[in-house]
């Protein structure tokens, strides 16, 4: 009997995977988004092996001339900067930085947001009051002055950029998950868990959490998208980590060079990448929204 149950578990796992497959393939946009995300992920993982040049290597063309401000060509697929840096290589290595910042801050912010939301929503009362006042204060905090102060205090390092992004974006997911937890808490199956002897923490993490999971996935994708945008804005304003290239950082360099009107290719590739990845994340999360919203669910 137990072997038949193990095989049943496998069947359920297969069903769950098929469910995700179905969600992603439910429309063309999310399908497109999914493959774009996969592509960027692969580029990020293998970046050092793909990039033909070092991001800060002054390049020379096959004739031995210094390659400054070259438009896209066979040799330099995305052109070069005024200092002769290969933009294609920069873009590939920047993908790694941007994705890393996006995923790490998206993940940390959803973990904080989910916990704050679940605890505030479940306990209510004073705990809720305190936690929600804290998020309110963060809502009142304008992003730019906030990140300027943080970076002035701690320096332009990746860790502090991630910290600043996380502090800004966790609040929205906390709000949404709190609302969801408050409504789930009223459901009778939570009363039943209580009557059976489940502790508060058990109820929060074993009974409520799985029921907010679709929403959590949705907001994880949103948070990653927001982190990428936020990182790009911060880098563009010169608050990025000077040691690494990122998409926003590339645009900042362009701005500094004063060649904005001349070097359209320098402007094009990082912008297209930001837009492409962010919209892909939004497309995929839209498909999950259908699952998160029980009214749209076919069962």
């Amino acid at each position: 009997m137990s072997s038949s149950r193990t095989s049943q578990r496998f069947r359920k796992l297969r069903l769950a995977l098929r469910e995700h497959y179905r969600i992603i393939n439910s429309n063309k946009l999310s399908q497109f988004g999914f493959w774009v995300i996969i592509l960027f992920t692969l580029v990020a993982i293998f970046a050092p092996w793909i990039a033909p040049h070092d991001p800060w290597e002054m390049t020379y063309d096959s004739n031995g001339n210094f390659a400054s401000l070259r438009p896209p060509s066979w040799e330099f697929p995305m052109g070069t900067t005024h200092l002769g840096y290969d933009l294609f290589s920069q873009l590939i290595l920047a993908t790694r930085t941007t994705l890393l910042i996006g995923v790490v801050s998206g993940f940390i912010s959803i973990v904080i947001g989910a916990n704050v939301g679940l605890i505030a929503g479940y306990y209510g009362g004073k705990i809720d009051e305190v936690l929600m006042r804290i998020t309110d204060i963060l809502y009142g905090m304008p992003f730019l002055p906030f990140i300027i102060v943080l970076i002035a205090l701690f320096g332009r390092q990746l860790e502090f950029i991630i910290l600043a992004i996380v502090l800004i974006i966790w609040r929205t997911s906390a709000r949404v998950i709190r609302a969801q937890a408050m409504s789930i808490k009223q459901r009778q199956y939570i009363q039943m868990a209580k009557a059976r002897g489940a502790s508060d923490l058990r109820i929060i993490y074993r009974h409520i959490l799985p029921n907010v999971l679709p929403l959590l996935l949705l907001y994880a994708a949103f948070n990653i998208a927001w982190s990428i945008i936020t990182e790009a804005s911060a880098s563009f304003l010169g608050f990025g980590d000077g040691e690494t290239v990122s998409w926003g950082g590339m645009l900042y360099e362009l701005w500094l060079s004063g060649k904005t009107r001349v070097a359209w290719w320098w402007f094009a590739s990082p912008s297209v990448c930001i837009i492409l990845l962010v919209t892909s994340l939004v497309f995929v999360s839209r498909a999950y929204e259908e699952v998160a919203n029980p009214r749209l669910r076919k069962r």
Binding site: K12, R187, Q188, Y189, Q191, M192, A193, A195, R196, H207, P210, N211, L213
Partner: peptide, 16 residues
């Protein structure tokens, strides 16, 4: 132990 009135509401939809 309590047996609940509404079997549609009282079972956690995410539990086997």
């Amino acid at each position: 132990q309590m047996i609940f009135q509404d079997p549609y509401e009282s079972l956690n939809p995410r539990f086997r």
